[in-house]
Each structure stands twice: as structure tokens, then as C-alpha cells.
Amino acid sequence: MPENKGPDSRGPEYKGLVLVAEDERHIADLQRRYLSREGFGVHVETDGTGALAAARRLRPAAIVLDIALPGMDGMEVCRRLREEGDWTPVVFVTARDEVTDRILGLEIGADDYLAKPFSPHELVARIKSLLRRAAGPDRDPVRRVGRLALDTGRRTLHVDGRPVELTTTEFNLLAYLMARPGQVFTREQLLAQVWGYAGYRDTRVMDVYVSQLRAKLGPASPIRTVRGVGYGVTETGP
């Protein structure tokens, strides 16, 4: 689990949470180190059952999935996610480099495949490539919901054409929610996705940041609270 320094410690370079499912600790630590250097949050699970539960709970941006996991192998984890309609990018990792394994993995729904030993630089490059493809080449950097226009390239926010100053933390949270209007996220999911702190103990800190955002946005705030679940942004805003 990433070191819990608190949400404000992560800057605008954060690229999302990567779930690493690997039972060999030294390999998992190596992947965590290189992914963290590139701005990714990392959550590690050491068996298939834990990996499947974490994928469902945290909604990572990408998954690095060892095939030979104890309990439930990586193939089964990927198969179940795809059956549930979860198409999070998956990179399979295995000690075997057999063509049949590679074909089966891709047929199940994996997006890429790496055979051990592999360069951690290559793993990072492949994850970045998968996320770029998932985002699409023509994505508009300006996100609009209701009276809000948020520019992720310039990192600016305008409400009714008026600029509103946000902290890095507030901007990252609002950008994540505005990119997914209509969806509702738990506090833990937001901490994991926006800052990479899966398992952060004080999830109520999210309430503080939402309150600060609402105060700055005023009546234009599109953020809604779903009791017993968490937060989301309405499709059209207020």
C-alpha cells in the first residue's frame, strides 16, 4: 500500500491508480517503485481473490496481473472482470512465454502481455500506451458540466465565465468527477483514484475537500452526495 502521507502530498502529475497483482514480493516492490516514479499510485495484492476484490472496490486505471497467482489465477481474475463488463486495461505478466498462454490471455480480454524477466521501464511504457489509447486521440481538454468549464490542459476552472482558483487537491478531485458525470464513487475509491491512497484510513477527509469545493463553486456546484455511498457529479449540473 502506498505510504499514507495524506492527499495534499500528491501533485498534478498524478496519473491514476495501478493495481499490481503479484505474489513475488521483490517483483511487486520493483513494479511499485517504477510506477510510483512516473506518477502512478500503486496498490498491491498477492493472490487472485484479493486482486478481484480490489479491482471491484477501487476501480483502478490499469491492472498488472500475474497469471500464476495463488488461490485464483490471473486468467480467471481477468475472465470474471470481463464478464462483469469491466474493461479496465490489463497487462498479463507470466514466467512462461508460451504462445498458447498468450493467445488465451488475449482471447479472455487482456490488453497486453509481458514475459518474465522484463524491464520495469517497458512495463511503465506499455501501461502509459494503454491508457493513452483508452483516453482516445481527440479528447477535449475542456470538460463542461452545467455552468462549469474545466480545462485540464491549462488547469483552470471557469464558472459562468468567471475564473475560480482551486488548490491542486481540489482541481484533481473536481476533474476526476467531471470526467465521469452520472457515476457515484465511494470515499475510498476517490482517494485511490485521485491520489493513489488505497486503504487510507481517514476516508472522511474526502468530506472536507468536497465541502471546500462546494463553498468555492456556490450554487453552480454539480457535486451531489449519495447517502451511504459517496459522491458524484450530475450529468447537467444545477
Rank of each mutant, 00 (worst) to 15 (best):
R33D: 02
A54H: 07
P137D: 09
D202L: 08
A175C: 06
L104C: 08
R227F: 03
Q183S: 13
E107N: 15
E107R: 15
Y197R: 02
V145D: 00
L104H: 15
D202K: 14
E3M: 13
L150Q: 03
T152F: 11
D97S: 14
R162S: 09
V20M: 01
D23Q: 05
I103E: 13
K15V: 03
H121M: 08
R162K: 14
L130P: 04
A135L: 12
R204D: 06
V18N: 03
R37F: 15
M75G: 03
R126W: 14
R147P: 02
F171G: 13
G182N: 06
R25G: 01
A61E: 08
G109W: 04
L30N: 02
L190A: 06
H121C: 05
V145E: 00
N4D: 03
A110G: 14
G161E: 00
R32L: 03
N4S: 06
D151G: 12
P120A: 08
R33L: 11
D111E: 07
D29H: 07
E76Q: 13
R143T: 15
I103K: 09
A215K: 12
T236A: 11
T156G: 13
I67H: 04
G39R: 06
A110N: 11
S9P: 02
K5D: 05
E170I: 06
E45N: 05
I108M: 03
L69C: 04
W195S: 01
A51Q: 05
Y197N: 00
R80N: 04
Y200T: 01
D23I: 07
T186N: 02
F40T: 00
V99I: 12
D151V: 10
R144G: 09
G146A: 11
I223F: 15
Q212R: 14
A54T: 12
R155Y: 10
R143V: 15
D207V: 04
L213N: 06
Y113H: 14
L65K: 02
L19Y: 07
V233C: 08
Y200M: 04
D29Y: 10
F92G: 01
A179N: 09
R144H: 14
R126F: 14
D29S: 07
D112A: 14
G232L: 04
A110R: 12
S119Y: 13
Y231C: 05
F185P: 00
E165V: 12
E3W: 15
Q183V: 08
P238V: 07
A175S: 13
V99F: 13
T236K: 12
R155V: 05
Q212E: 02
D151P: 02
G237R: 01
Q31F: 15
R37G: 10
R82M: 06
D151T: 08
A175P: 00
A220N: 07
Q212M: 07
R139I: 05
K216S: 07
L217M: 06
V93R: 08
N172I: 00
V99S: 09
V99N: 08
V164R: 09
P89L: 06
I27R: 06
C78D: 00
E107L: 12
K116I: 04
T88D: 00
L166K: 07
L19R: 08
A134Y: 05
